[in-house]
């Protein structure tokens, strides 16, 4: 029963991802992507990683995707964007990316052929994660905070200039 739940969620994730990447409307694609992320969160939970699953939903599907939504709303692409996207997705354009991706997948499969093993089935509690995080990995936490700070500053900088120029007070 639970195993079938896993495979259903995996199927959902795969289908939603493919759909997300082939839609011509950005908003629709984003919804599919969120579905995909939620399905992956289910997988995390089923594999015994409840903390990761929670973060996947909160931050990935929540915060990051909301950012996308905001940007798409700001750009306001509309109907013309959809038509143009559809023109770009003609079958001819699929050949090279399709072949490349298929080759890579094939190679990954070949590499994963060995080691048929099962997951432990024992959950790793958030407490353990927290202990490891602020124990041996405290430096990684610091680095991650630095990275986020850099992202914050970069995003602020890029966004600020955008707004300033929009108002025509510069250049």
């Amino acid at each position: 029963m639970m195993e079938s739940l896993f495979y259903i969620a995996a199927l959902v994730a795969l289908v939603a991802t493919v759909a997300a990447l082939t839609r011509s409307n950005a908003a629709h694609a984003l919804i599919y992507l969120i579905v995909s992320l939620l399905a992956v969160a289910v997988l995390f939970f089923l594999m015994g990683a409840p903390f990761a699953a929670a973060l996947e939903i909160l931050i990935y599907a929540g915060a990051i995707m909301v950012l996308f939504v905001f940007v798409i709303m700001m750009l306001n692409l509309g109907e013309t964007g959809d038509i143009r996207e559809r023109q770009w997705l003609r079958p001819r354009n699929w050949i090279v990316p399709g072949v490349m991706a298929a080759l890579l997948l094939l190679e990954l499969l070949l590499a994963l052929r060995h080691a048929p093993t099962l997951t432990s089935g024992v959950a790793v509690a958030p407490k353990d994660v927290g202990l490891a995080l602020f124990g041996p990995y405290v430096l990684a936490v610091e680095i991650a905070s630095m990275l986020l700070l850099a992202g914050l500053v970069g995003a602020y900088h890029l966004g600020r200039r955008f707004i300033v120029r929009r108002e025509g007070r510069s250049n």
Binding site: F6, M47, G48, L112, A115, P116, T117, T119
Partner: peptide, 12 residues
């Protein structure tokens, strides 16, 4: 709380 025992290959 326990988790599922799933073939790792499938996840990968």
């Amino acid at each position: 709380m326990g988790g599922l025992q799933i073939p790792l290959e499938h996840v990968l």
